[in-house]
Design a protein around this nucleic acid. Structure first.
Lengths: 254, 254
DNA sequence: ACTGTGATTATGTATATACATATCAGAAAG
DNA sequence: CTTTCTGATATGTATATACATAATCACAGT
């Protein structure tokens, strides 16, 4: 390598003072990948080449490349180098908002109403709703609630809480505030599963939402676990035109 | 700290030879957080304390903690320490499958059918469908397709492709294979947005799917960008009972 | 031609060190 | 009593170095 390297050392190319060097290297490479300049299968420069290009140590380059590998944009093979992976895992990030936030984002006043609250021994159906996991036996709390946007019903909430996982819920009366936000502050959930589907409203739900029976609805069901143990199952039913779920994907690792 | 530290130095506690030290530290801490042992707000040990506990250098501890911070499980504040964050961003990962894979997962034979293919200058409606971005002007390809599971229609696909972004699509005839998989191999998409909602089937769609008009359907719309430029918009319409979207969340960083 | 074997190479992990930076506590000054 | 300054502290980033590990290549021997 010629001695023209000296000028690179004193100023790392198009330096941006706000971000760190490894972040800049990471962004540079990511940009070249997502722009298509480096297509899937392309062998990106070796660590020692980038070391020379940016005039920094191998550790700095390694930190950038390791993160890119972890985020799935590149694949690293010993002795061979690092390669651009094809965008394979079409995964998107789905943001689950609080219903109050959702309603207020529409500029409408939010109101919550408890329709029914039952404490009972877990039935087989209850156990199935809560999902697989140990110690599901015992008491559960079943709740039916209604969320309003202005004067109109916004969504029906049908929730089951495992009192084995959340004993504090037994003494709670969810008259004023919804169980969702309370639970989040209560239990450190470690896993969640969402199922989103469409269905025709059954008679009762339709009545609650002020719809004709059979009207299309969006149903979001969520199961939550805390340390492998089922915590809660909740089903939100929205009128078809009231709500949509948005999910985004960007290969960001910043 | 007493001098009993010596034994920790020689063998890093419950050593697992398969994983690296920083991974083990990361896992240890993550486990304590998701198990609830360290609740939100808890100040986790300082780097120099973990350094002593694991008998390793600060860089190793730092690598573990930095990753936990990046994955959002902890928050790091200079001079104050690192703190367990409350599980705030209820984000879930939504896996977008190929329709062929979905159908075959049901154990049914997959069949694809092209209903219509039109090439035209982009209208205002087309530009809105493709979403914001530069150089949307120009020609677009509009496709209507039907995906079958066995003998029954599984879903209707209504797609718009920007020929400015994918000029190769102009010469393609999507008679045998669906445009989705072809596009993935063609364009390195860098961002995607999904909107999932429920709606009543309109007359044409209902007919295609063999449903009564007004039957509830699940609609998934996806917009894709490649380097800020709109590539395609696609709307999949499924009969309510045929399909559901599943999204999972786990605070995994392995 | 085939096969093993060792050298080479790029990455993976870890260390000690250094300095920058944000922030907080308490001291000094007004 | 408030403001300002200063030092202490924990994290953030970067470096040079070292050795481990996996994969590949070249070469020697059967």
């Amino acid at each position: 390598m010629p001695d023209s390297m000296a000028e690179m050392v004193e100023e790392p190319v198009g330096g941006d003072a706000s971000t760190s060097l490894y972040q800049r290297i990471l962004n540079d490479i990511r940009d070249r990948i997502v722009s298509g300049e480096w297509e899937p299968g392309y062998r990106i420069p070796f660590e020692h080449e980038l070391t020379a290009e940016y005039g920094c140590s191998r550790m700095t380059v390694n930190k950038a490349l390791s993160q890119l590998a972890k985020s799935g944009l590149i694949e690293r093979r010993r002795r061979s180098g690092s390669f651009v992976r094809r965008p394979q895992s079409q995964a998107a990030v789905l943001e689950i908002h609080d219903i109050r936030i959702e309603v207020e984002a529409l500029g409408l006043p939010y109101r919550y109403e408890l329709m029914a609250q039952t404490k009972r021994r877990a039935t087989t159906v209850d156990r199935e709703r809560l999902g697989p996991g140990p110690s599901v036996a015992g008491q559960v709390l079943a709740l039916q609630c209604l969320h309003y946007a202005g004067v109109r019903p916004f969504c029906v909430e049908d929730r089951l809480i495992s009192l084995a996982a959340v004993p504090e819920a037994a003494d709670q009366e969810f008259l004023k505030s919804a169980p969702g936000p309370w639970l989040i502050g209560q239990v450190p959930w470690s896993a969640a599963e969402h199922v989103i589907r469409a269905a025709a409203a059954d008679g009762e739900t339709a009545a609650d939402l002020g719809l004709a029976s059979g009207a299309p609805c969006l149903i979001i069901e969520r199961r939550t676990w805390s340390a492998e143990r089922p915590v809660t199952h909740v089903r939100f039913t929205y009128p078809a035109n009231a709500h949509a779920v948005v999910a985004r994907f960007t290969p960001s690792d910043s």
